[in-house]
Amino acid sequence: MLTEEERREIEEEFEHFDYKQAVSVDALKIVQKHRGWVSDESIKDIAELLEMSPAELDGVATFYNLIYRKPVGKHVILLCDSVSCWVMGCDRMRAHFTKRLGIDFGETSEDNEFTLLPMQCLGTCDHAPAMMIDETLHRDLDEDKIDGIIERYKG
């Protein structure tokens, strides 16, 4: 069941469009914001609200890389692995995460703190390598910097 709050936030989005379906991505993001990910149950609930079928909504949900259809850790690390960051060493950053947290792309750390995902070019190529953790951008990465950042999020 959607919470009151989720439902209200989704319904607010209706005002921007003439069609309910247009809100699908917003609705998915709203639920994800509250719950961390979008479960099958949520897909059904949102679909009902948007007068779509669950199959149709899931067709949308599974298209986007930032809609999580499986549980993720408390923090999601979106490590840019596009070309500028690659030139500037994102593979090393990835390896460092694996070393530090024991996770590779698509995995969640055992303590459920972090999920590591690859990310398309973050549009900050002049400060590559770059990543986002949750909604915060981190740039000009190197191993030391990553260590510091991980410490901050762990607390």
């Binding site: 779509m52 199959a55 599974t62």
Partner: peptide
């Protein structure tokens, strides 16, 4: 019908039901 659709994308597109 509305219970068959296409899911996912790229080389992984999947044609089926929600469940």
């Amino acid at each position: 019908g509305d219970d068959l659709s296409v899911m996912a994308s790229r080389g992984e597109v999947y044609f089926g039901r929600f469940e």
